[in-house]
Design a protein around this nucleic acid. Structure first.
Length: 255
DNA sequence: ATGGCCAATTTTATTGGA
């Protein structure tokens, strides 16, 4: 199973690029984030014409997540399924090929100390409790825009980013709590080096200067992690006009 | 001083992203 995750920063703005990338890379499963559209407005037809099954959790203007798969998607759930009245569309899960696939768009967090930052930490705690209601011995993959760079080697300038949102200690600790449920980073199974990023700011020629962060991740439970054969970031997809500010991350599993 | 760019909506500004 070849699985990709990609924050497309609006599926409508990225439609041609997304379809072309899928055609060229031919993954089996794709986790999408930042659809920025309600389900009714999702351009369903060109994806279905290309043979994709869709599971969508949309929202007007902001957020929105989805899963595309070559094979049928079953047991679709949306949101964190708790008592919180939060209605932001940031998580969707479905089963495909015997694997529980979770597409997640973690909150950005605004500035540290803001309400958005507090919401982000709360959301990550809720995600951990959502995972607690699942079995870490079963094949599950959590993929998406985590909006946290886990380590210094995931940040182009760790000193400048120290304490900033996306790299602050409380966020990294909350992410470790998610990992402690039973997930491992498939990218780090295959790559120890720094300087590998999945997001570059649109501003300031960040991509040209390769000043990015690795905040998009594919994490897997043990039975899947063990059979993960490769994980790479497709920085080619970040090049040129009309690119998302995120690159796809692609992991291959022998299942 | 904390910007720059991009997308959607509230559209010739504002909000959010990261």
């Amino acid at each position: 199973m070849k699985l990709a995750t990609w924050n497309v920063n609006s599926i409508r703005a990225r439609l041609d690029r997304a379809l072309a990338w899928l055609d060229a890379n031919r993954p089996d499963v794709v986790c999408l984030q930042e659809l920025k559209v309600e389900v009714d407005g999702f351009p369903r037809e060109p994806f279905e014409a290309a043979g994709w099954h869709l599971a969508l959790h949309g929202q007007k203007t902001y957020n929105g997540v989805g899963i595309l798969a070559r094979a049928p998607l079953t047991d679709v759930t949306r949101g964190l399924e708790d008592d919180d009245p939060d209605e932001q569309a940031r998580l969707i899960a479905a089963t495909v090929g015997g694997v529980r696939v979770v597409s997640a768009y973690f909150p950005n967090g605004g500035d540290t100390g803001s309400d958005k930052y507090a919401y982000k930490l709360r959301w990550m705690g809720r995600l951990r409790r959502w995972l607690d209601r699942h079995d870490p011995a079963a094949p599950l993959v959590l993929a998406g825009d985590f909006n946290v760079a886990p380590e210094d080697r995931d940040v182009h300038d760790p000193a400048a980013w120290a304490g900033q949102t996306l790299f602050s200690e409380p966020e990294k600790e909350a992410l470790r709590q998610v990992a402690a449920w039973g997930l491992r980073d498939t990218f780090r199974k295959h790559h120890a080096e720094g300087g590998r990023y999945s997001w570059w700011d649109y501003r300031g020629l960040s991509f040209i200067r390769d000043q990015g962060l690795r905040i998009d991740h594919v994490w897997a439970t043990a039975p899947l992690y063990e059979v993960c054969r490769a994980c790479d970031i497709d920085r080619e997809a970040r090049k040129g006009k009309n690119a998302s500010d995120h690159a796809p991350v692609v992991a291959t599993f022998d299942v």
